[in-house]
Design a protein around this nucleic acid. Structure first.
Lengths: 252, 252
DNA sequence: GAGAAAAAGATTGTTGACAATTCAATGAAG
DNA sequence: CTTCATTGAATTGTCAACAATCTTTTTCTC
């Protein structure tokens, strides 16, 4: 576009390129593909909350037009992973403490409903698919592959929702799981990655044994164990412009 | 745009204009305004499921550009009130029976969580605001103002969520309430409008008395009373193209 | 030198024209 | 008369240039 891209542009473009990888130029890239790439990068915490997602940079990264990038950013904003500030661009969302608490509270409610329904429909086959995920998760943790561990941990919860057999609850949970990951990125200590696979085992076993009440209780505790260690005092840098807080520069 | 709009265009444009009203040309119309108008028209069942929402027609109706309409339609699709068929346009969604059942099941779970939390935080003042809505709803029903009754019934549930004080649960419930209205439009008999205000009174009273368990039970029954009379056998005209069901016209 | 106004640069938002796809009507063949 | 290909109109999807807005740098004054 610009014949001589200046320093800033190039910097931003390569920064996101490093995290997102380059998009194939050969065939047209679908919206879903771009969405998935950025979504994954945020959920796996390769993109820090507050990072600016410039349109031009994303265009170059994926080799597509601005219109397409714009649509994807709107979708990501719906998923609450990206914040759109009018005339200022798109940023990886920075959930507030209040928002984080609400997400966890809602998640406990939704997960409880999911577990209850999953208990009814659980078959040997389904349990096996769950167990496979937990085993993979364990392996990923052992080799310190944090990104795989995060992904598989999410997969566990989403598989549970799939077993529960309600697509609406599934979509709610998907939103909550990804937002949880963003919250951990914002408020988590660097050490803990979120879910421990042990908790997942405990829940899965209770479900296999048909003990719905125990499974719900374990899931609840699991979620509290994730929320508890978060550092909600630090309130990730506000980065809000003072104007919106203090109002316009006095006009009477 | 076209110098001589043909019969079809004008027909569609005026059809939606009658339901949506004309947009003010004087000042720029915000996305949210257009969204709210179409959203309201669908939720209040003035737009039938399956109705085509042509871009040109909407542009003329609200006096805005196609890009803006496109954005609003994307938002409505996220709210699951509009279905976007690639290269074919936007239609008021026609929820399947399966989807309808999932919505009701999810709604029972979310409403239970909402009521439980609302019970804890209920104050005299909050109860009064709830009661005011129920009274308004009653009046609307008495004067057979179906659209107002639908709106106020939704307001009751949404106010409950607001009292519960969790914005995430609120947004989930908002989606579920609007989708419920669409489901009733698709499968409801013409007679019943959905919520009876009596059920709302029962729930509100239990909450005022601090009896969370009773409130949840009443809410559950309320929702079942809405779901039960729906005619899930009729499966609102499929309108799916046979190609997607039968596969491409044989290719070996 | 500090602070404020002004200009330049860069980024987002919008518009209108063009391309691609779908849908309906017409006509030909079985 | 039905079925299938063809053609044309209408609608959606895409793109690139233009306008508006914000950010940064420069310049001017005190």
């Amino acid at each position: 576009m610009a014949k001589l891209p200046n320093a800033r542009q190039t910097a931003t473009a390569t920064a996101t390129s490093q995290t997102l990888g380059r998009g194939g130029r050969g065939q047209p890239v679908a919206d879903e593909t771009i969405f998935a790439r950025v979504y994954g990068a945020i959920v796996e915490r390769r993109l820090e909350p507050g990072t600016k997602l410039g349109e031009e940079a994303l265009c170059e990264t994926f080799g597509v037009s601005r219109a397409q990038i714009r649509r994807v950013l709107l979708n990501l904003a719906h998923a609450k992973l990206v914040e759109l500030r009018p005339n200022r661009g798109a940023y990886v969302a920075q959930p507030s403490v209040r928002e984080a608490r609400h997400v966890f509270e809602a998640r406990r409610a939704v997960e409880a409903a999911v577990v209850e329904r999953a208990a009814d429909r659980m078959t040997e086959e389904m349990f096996e698919s769950l167990a496979a995920i937990v085993r993979e998760e364990h392996k990923a943790q052992e080799r310190s592959d944090k990104q795989a561990a995060i992904r598989l941990s999410g997969d566990f919860h989403l598989r549970l929702a799939q077993i529960a057999g309600n697509e609406v609850l599934s979509s709610f949970l998907q939103e909550l799981v990804s937002r949880t990951s963003l919250i951990i990125a914002a408020y988590g200590m660097t050490s803990d990655s979120g879910c421990s696979h042990d908790d997942h085992w405990t829940v899965a076993r209770a479900l296999r044994d048909g003990d719905a009440a125990a499974a719900i209780a374990h899931m609840n505790q699991h979620l509290r164990f994730i929320e508890e260690p978060l550092n909600f005092v630090t309130e990730a840098d506000p980065l809000v412009d003072l104007k919106t807080i203090l109002g316009p520069p006095a006009e009477s």
